[in-house]
């Protein structure tokens, strides 16, 4: 009997963890309409609990305790935390989603260190996100963030660079996030320098690849045209 129960509970855990990332994945990069506003990312009850729990994060961190306190504040029973099978990760996910959606309102006013502090999640949240069960969902969220940033930056690429741009930005973003957890400088100035130098590297690589592509294209066309001018029937 025990193996059956074990497999059932394992399956349950797996299902709880896998349902939402699957939905999140499916909703990624779908047709975005300007005729109406998107529906909010969380249902009303979840949103109420998570937002009041979010107020406890500064004192309690991204923990199940913050979630319980938030449930009470929102006027629900403690058992309502069952709405969030992923526990603390749901709180982290709420932070990531709301900050991502708020980005389009903040982007007009490029902030100082305070802006960086708001976006960063901190070492403990990173540790939660790096748990194997939550890695897919975290990666989806990272991809969505990179997509949002490129969209807000007005990027219009429609070829392979769409992928390389998002991949490189995601890499830089996560590297900076990890760097930030070790940063003790005031206002995270070292993180800012780190980010600037990584972005500079990226632009160098981008310019080099662009020049290489242009050279290859030019050489190829010239070769064909020279051969044609020699009378070759190609």
């Amino acid at each position: 009997m025990a193996p059956v129960r074990l497999s059932n509970s394992l399956l349950g855990t797996f299902r709880a963890a896998s349902i939402r990332p699957a939905n999140a994945w499916r909703q990624k990069c779908l047709y975005h309409s300007y005729d109406y506003t998107e529906s909010p990312p969380f249902p009303p009850a979840e949103s109420a609990i998570l937002s009041s729990a979010y107020n406890h994060v500064p004192s309690h961190g991204f923990t199940i305790d913050a979630l319980k306190l938030g449930t009470r504040d929102a006027g629900y029973l403690d058992v309502s935390t069952n709405l969030f099978p992923r526990g603390a990760f749901d709180l982290v996910s709420y932070h990531l989603v709301t900050q991502r959606l708020a980005l389009k309102d903040n982007v007009q006013f490029p902030g100082d260190g305070e802006q960086g502090k708001r976006m960063g999640v901190g070492a403990k949240a990173l540790a939660i996100m790096a748990q194997p069960t939550y890695i897919p969902a975290s990666l989806v969220e990272l991809a969505k963030l990179a997509d949002e940033i490129w969209f807000l930056a007005g990027d219009q690429s429609v070829d392979s660079s769409w992928y390389t741009k998002r991949a490189s930005l995601s890499t830089i973003y996560s590297a900076t996030e990890v760097f930030m957890t070790q940063d003790k400088s005031a206002n995270f100035t070292e993180t800012e320098q780190f980010l600037d130098s990584r972005l500079e590297d990226l632009m160098k690589i981008g310019r080099f690849m662009g020049a290489l592509g242009e050279w290859g294209n030019y050489t190829g066309h010239s070769t064909i045209n020279v051969l044609r001018s020699k009378g070759m029937r190609i």
Binding site: K28, L30, Y31, H32, D147, F151, D155, V158, W162
Partner: peptide, 8 residues
């Protein structure tokens, strides 16, 4: 596709 944020 870039306006409606569709993945190429």
């Amino acid at each position: 596709i870039s306006k409606h944020r569709i993945r190429p």
